[in-house]
Write a protein that binds this DNA or RNA. Structure first.
Lengths: 231, 231
DNA sequence: GTTAAGGGTTAACATACTTTAACTTTCATT
DNA sequence: AATGAAAGTTAAAGTATGTTAACCCTTAAC
């Protein structure tokens, strides 16, 4: 399971760190709700379902420990990571005793936070792997990502792995820009000249596959990337 | 639920710290095997089954990262905690990328280590790990791993050992990627060209067995592995 | 000890996928 | 309009995979 699309409840009152974390996690594809105090966090938690919680320990209205205790009273399973400036042994111990999954002392690297989230989620593996089931409607076509096929008028066309990965990224950004370097890093792992040329070849192939519906276009944004345009 | 009687593999070359940890964990009721280098750790791991591994990163003969990589080649689930004097960001990241569950920098409190073990084991026990499932539903088929048989419409088909092992790995990763090298290390013990070709032959055989249900597909992810796709 | 059956591997050939190369066209800039 | 960089396109080259059948072991019956 990947960490993409994870629903994260982030409770952090520090303006700059909070914003930074929010933007970073969002950029990494997580679905983050950002609140600034313990009470707001508890209300948010009650209202919807989250895959993981990230709580600052020192917060206005209600501290992270108290918040976690209230949550653990009814929910024993949602993972909780504490963030704190204190590295006091007693605090760390209290955090884990409440039922935390991890405890990070500031300053920490955001990359490490992401990896710790990943490590926890590997263990959790909830049954909703349905997140991976992706279908896209592209004009008159439908695209089954899992099976790597596109269908139009009962006719199906199998896609190769690379074709499918590229079309998927285009679909995620449908009618918006898919940046070249993002796609290259994502599919080819490296943004190099030759990989870029390879990507161009695949764009050509996708255009051929999709030409049955003249409404559909993959247009190039010079120097930036491509856009899948669908009415 | 407690951490008592957990089988722990502790690899730590530092005499005093190693002894300290060994005695502490033993006193807390854990069943600890203490080795002093990476090679000894790998041999111990092969010989018996452990609930969790605690590896120092810098060790004689083989460092903790290399050790963990070798273990992860065939075992993706046994939790691993790294201990290290270095708190370099790159090292931490590498540790998690290998598949670590936690990474602690020295000095740390032994109490915290114990709590981190506990936090991990909570997840291991509650998470649905498919690894020891004995029956799988594959579309209209059912697969009895122990008996090495698949059944559809009262008809049964016996599988050979290799066929069954491969299908089992595909099922564990159902609708997800089964990496080639992982399957090869796991079933053939070695990722070589000829074993890879042999694996391809078995993929063909499994496709034939499973063709009664047209919804089921074993699709190839070029250069990466195979995916058992089931609606 | 021979033999046949079953399981697994190797060989051989066919096909599919990805990258590279070469040439053409478009675009932004001057 | 001239220029160089980026993108469009096609085909060839290089790998990876699909498939079938022959081959080679081991086992167990004779």
């Amino acid at each position: 399971m990947s960490i993409k699309n994870l629903k994260v409840l982030l409770a952090e009152d520090d303006e700059s760190l909070g914003m930074l974390l929010f933007e970073y996690l969002k950029a990494k594809g997580l679905d983050v709700e950002h609140v600034k105090d313990g009470v707001a966090a508890f209300n948010a938690f009650k209202k919807s379902t989250f895959d993981i919680c990230i709580f600052d320990v020192m917060m206005p209205k209600e501290d992270g420990f108290t918040l976690a205790k209230r949550i653990r009273a009814t929910d024993k399973s949602t993972p909780i990571i504490f963030l704190t400036a204190k590295s006091l042994k007693e605090d760390i111990i209290e955090g884990f005793l409440i039922g935390a999954d991890d405890y990070m002392t500031k300053p920490f690297s955001m990359e490490e936070l992401l990896l710790r989230i990943d490590a926890i989620m590997r263990r959790v593996k909830t049954g909703n792997n349905n997140e991976d089931v992706e279908f896209f409607d592209i004009g008159k076509y439908s695209f089954d990502v899992k099976k790597q096929v596109i269908t139009i008028n009962e006719k199906t066309q199998k896609l190769t792995t690379k074709e499918s990965e590229l079309l998927r990224l285009l679909c995620i950004n449908m009618n918006g820009l898919l940046e070249r370097n993002y796609a290259l890093e994502n599919i080819w792992q490296e943004d190099s000249y030759f990989n870029a040329r390879s990507m161009d070849v695949y764009i050509t192939k996708l255009r051929k596959y999709l030409k049955e519906d003249p409404q559909i276009e993959i247009i190039n944004i010079h120097g930036k990337g491509f856009k899948l345009v669908v009415p």
